[in-house]
């Protein structure tokens, strides 16, 4: 167990725990860039995880599970959209409501349908994602340094993991290089201008909310179909809020989001690793401090002590077409 090996293992688990954060934070990126605040990421992820676990258990198909996750997550997004875009309600209140409705109903429905204390049945081989080994992973493992990095760190993850990392440049491309992306960002900064150009603010925001739903669906499916074999009550455990923190920490930019999620994932992995082991030089660090660190960092960033996080200008404000 040399130092290098420890690092590889640590980074490997960092990647594993960062994936749902990346999906969810990118999901938040789409809505918040369009001017709809979303603190319901947690609820959507949880609902998607439940749908994925339940449908995969019944149909024994991982793809049906993923599809169900995406559909449920889109449906929840549309509720949020209806409340905050069409009804011009308070977006934060709506997000809080969705988090509660999902937290309660996943347990009630899970218990009613499967009777396993809010869990869905454990999934077998075909009903969950399997790890993907990159080509030659086994043959070059013996090469020092590069071998373990390729075979242990980069290879052997789930398909969704690679999709998550691929979504980072894809999201960047959509937001910064397509007409849709330009308009989406414009609607979050100055919806009046977009409206004047003859583009529907409402429809644009709805599309942004649907994009958010799709990505949250992936995040939820990863939790119950890849990371574990089945849904467990309350399994998101605040990941939606960490993703929200990462989104702000990244100042609403795709590449930064990946780095922020990896940082928060690393802190999480380190906290698990350090449990009970004193750190050299610093000594014993309370686990609770490590767990609180992402939140503390976000507060410090928001306060403008590490750069300045400037949210989209029209964020949280419902658009009222001329009075």
């Amino acid at each position: 167990m040399d130092f290098f090996h420890v690092i590889v293992v640590l980074l490997e688990s960092t990647i594993r725990v960062s994936v749902p954060l990346i999906f969810a934070a990118l999901a938040g990126l789409f809505t918040e860039r369009a001017g709809v605040f979303d603190i319901g990421l947690e609820g959507k992820m949880l609902g998607a995880a439940f749908a994925a676990g339940a449908v995969a258990a019944v149909t024994q198909s991982v793809w049906m599970g993923l599809l169900a996750a995406i559909l449920i997550s889109i449906a929840l997004s549309l509720v949020h959209g209806y409340a905050s875009i069409t009804q011009r309600g308070n977006q934060i209140v709506s997000g809080v409501a969705i988090n509660f409705i999902v937290a309660g109903s996943t347990v009630i429905l899970g218990e009613a349908w499967f009777r396993q204390g809010g869990r869905t049945p454990a999934l077998g081989e075909g009903a969950r994602f399997q790890v993907v080994n990159l080509p030659f992973a086994d043959s070059i493992r013996e090469i020092p340094i590069l071998g373990p990095i390729y075979s242990d760190l980069l290879s052997g993850h789930f398909l969704l993991t690679y999709i998550a990392f691929a979504m980072v440049p894809v999201s960047w491309w959509i937001l910064y290089r397509t007409r849709f992306g330009l308009r989406l960002r414009a609607v979050g900064e100055n919806p009046g201008a977009v409206d004047t150009a003859g583009i529907s603010v409402i429809w644009l925001r709805y599309r942004a909310v649907i994009c958010c739903g799709i990505l949250c669906g992936f995040a939820g499916a990863y939790l119950s179909l890849a990371m574990t074999a089945g849904f467990v009550k309350g399994m998101t455990a605040g990941k939606g809020y960490i993703a929200l923190a990462a989104l702000i920490f990244a100042k609403w930019r795709p590449k930064n989001i990946m780095l922020a999620c990896l940082l928060f994932g690393f802190l999480d992995a380190l906290a698990i690793r350090l449990q009970g082991n004193p750190l050299p030089l610093i000594g014993q660090v309370p686990v609770q401090l490590m767990q609180a660190l992402p939140y503390i960092l976000t507060v410090i960033l928001l306060a403008g002590f590490i750069g300045k996080a400037i949210p989209p200008k029209a964020g949280g404000v419902p658009y009222v077409k001329e009075r």
């Binding site: 209806y82 709506s94 409501a97 969705i98 509660f100 409705i101 937290a103 309660g104 009630i108």
Partner: peptide, 15 residues
């Protein structure tokens, strides 16, 4: 109760 709480927040608040 958590569901009802969420629904009350949704209908009495956001909607």
């Amino acid at each position: 109760i958590v569901i009802i709480q969420g629904l009350v927040i949704l209908f009495a608040g956001a909607l």
